[in-house]
């Protein structure tokens, strides 16, 4: 039995497609182009559920520490998706809390290949460290990360998404605080 979800994006794709789950695995197929991403059931290790810009994201962890993300799920897809992931792959869809407080202060945490910024213990955003083109320590308390823009050759290709090219953090150097300690 195959379950299908429509209008799903793969990663940061501008184009939406169909997302299908069956006992053999999961696959995403682009609406108009030839793009197909298939994940066989044997590779699937874990699954997480995030609120992102394009509604909800299914994040799937694979056996070789890679991961795939699929955006565009609706809030009410959660229960159905959780049930079929459990049924087909024996994994639990873990709900990750996301912060919408609008604060610019928090804690950074390296989670696999991501640098997560947490506000009140909830994810505010994540940065893929493998896409950092350059990083810099400016002064004692400032760290900058630069990202290589993806669409330099054909700049219209991503339907005008705004691309973050640099982020700077103020990191208090002298007060090293261990995450989770209240002391």
């Amino acid at each position: 039995m195959t379950t299908q979800f429509d209008r799903i994006f793969h990663g940061l794709s501008a184009e939406s497609g169909k997302f299908r789950v069956a006992a053999s695995g999961m696959a995403w197929k682009a609406e108009d182009t030839e793009g197909v991403t298939a994940v066989p059931s044997g590779d699937i290790k874990w699954a997480q559920w995030f609120r992102v810009a394009r509604n909800f994201q299914l994040r799937v962890g694979l056996k070789d520490r890679r991961r795939e993300t699929f955006d565009g799920f609706m809030r009410e897809d959660h229960d159905k998706l959780a049930a079929i992931l459990k049924q087909h792959f024996g994994i639990t869809l873990e709900v990750k809390d996301v912060s919408f407080k609008g604060w610019n202060w928090g804690v950074t945490d390296i989670q696999g290949q991501e640098l997560a910024f947490l506000v009140s213990n909830k994810t505010s955003f994540e940065l893929p460290l493998n896409q950092v083109a350059n990083s810099n320590i400016a002064g004692r308390t400032e760290v900058s990360l630069e990202f290589a823009p993806s669409g330099s050759a054909n700049k219209k290709s991503r339907s005008g998404m705004d691309e973050m090219v640099e982020i700077r953090f103020h990191v208090p150097g002298t007060h090293t605080r261990i995450r989770g300690s209240d002391a």
């Binding site: 610019n104 202060w105 700049k155 705004d162 973050m164 090219v165 982020i167 103020h170 208090p172």
Partner: peptide, 19 residues
């Protein structure tokens, strides 16, 4: 005033657009 001056802060972000 800051709620937690010892926290890590986002200091700046830069975006690029052809528009």
């Amino acid at each position: 005033p800051f709620e937690d001056p010892d926290a890590t802060f986002v200091r700046s972000v830069t975006y690029r657009s052809p528009e």
